[in-house]
C-alpha cells in the first residue's frame, strides 16, 4: 500500500511534469492525498486526467461567477479549483454557484472541501446525481461510493450552508435536562460552604 506521503509527493511531481507551477503542484499533491484519505479515488481520477491532459482541451476560468458555463471544452478542474479556493471569501456571499461542464470534477472536490474549512461553513456540492457534504475539510459525507472515474460533469451545484443547529430547541432541551441529572441540588448550607469564592465580593 502506498503511504499518503508518497501519494502527495508523486501527485505533486506529476503535476509539475504536466506544466503546472510549483505552487499549484503543491495544491494538487495535497488534494489527491486528501481525496485518498477520505476514501475517494484521487489517484485513479488524477491519472485519467493526466493521460488526456495534452490531447484534450480544457477551458480555464479566472474569475468565478454565480453561473459558470463552458459550451465548448470542459472547465479544467484544477484551475477552476485553485480559483475557487482563492476567491472563496467573496464567493460565499453568492450563497450558491453553478458550474456547467467541468472535466474530471472529482479533482475539483478537494478544493471545495478546503474552502469549507477556510470560511468555516459546510458546503453542499451536487455533481449531477452524486451528492457530497463537505464538513470543514474534516470529513466528506457522500452517496458516491463506487470506483468510477468521472471524466465530466454536466452540472455542479455548490451551496454554502449557513451555520445553524441541525436539531430543534426541544431536542436540545431534552438533552440539557438529562445532563442536569448529573448535578447535585445545593442545600442552603452547601451554598455557603462548597463554593470556592467568597459570598460577597464587595470587600
Amino acid at each position: 500500500m502506498k503511504s499518503f506521503s508518497e501519494i502527495d509527493t508523486i501527485s505533486k511531481r506529476a503535476s509539475r511534469a504536466l506544466g503546472y507551477s510549483w505552487g499549484i503542484s503543491e495544491e494538487i499533491g495535497k488534494n489527491i492525498r486528501l481525496l485518498e484519505m477520505f476514501g475517494l479515488n484521487g489517484i485513479k481520477n488524477f491519472n485519467a486526467y493526466c493521460s488526456v491532459f495534452k490531447k484534450r482541451k480544457f477551458q480555464n476560468i479566472a474569475l468565478i461567477a454565480k453561473k459558470n458555463y463552458s459550451k465548448t471544452s470542459p472547465f479544467c478542474p484544477i484551475t477552476t479549483g485553485v480559483n475557487f479556493l482563492d476567491q472563496v471569501t467573496i464567493l460565499e456571499e453568492l450563497t450558491d454557484l453553478e458550474f456547467q461542464n467541468v472535466g474530471f470534477p472529482l479533482l475539483f472536490l478537494p478544493f471545495v472541501s478546503r474552502a469549507s474549512e477556510i470560511i468555516g461553513k459546510k458546503i453542499f456540492l451536487k455533481l449531477d446525481n452524486r451528492e457530497f457534504l463537505l464538513n470543514f475539510n474534516q470529513s466528506i459525507f457522500t452517496n458516491f461510493l463506487n470506483n468510477e472515474i468521472i471524466d465530466n460533469s454536466k452540472i455542479i451545484n455548490i451551496k454554502f450552508l449557513t451555520n445553524k443547529d441541525s436539531f430543534t430547541d426541544n431536542e436540545w432541551k431534552n438533552l440539557l435536562n438529562l445532563s442536569h441529572e448529573t448535578f447535585v441540588d445545593e442545600s442552603e448550607e452547601l451554598k455557603k460552604s462548597a463554593a470556592g469564592a467568597g459570598l460577597t465580593d464587595n470587600d
Partner: peptide, 17 residues
C-alpha cells in the same frame, strides 16, 4: 487582493505561500 494577484500570477504561488 492576493487571490486576484494569484489568478494572473500562479507561477509565483509557491513563493507567496
Amino acid at each position: 487582493k492576493i487571490g486576484k494577484f494569484l489568478s494572473e500570477n500562479n507561477e509565483l504561488r509557491h513563493i507567496v505561500r
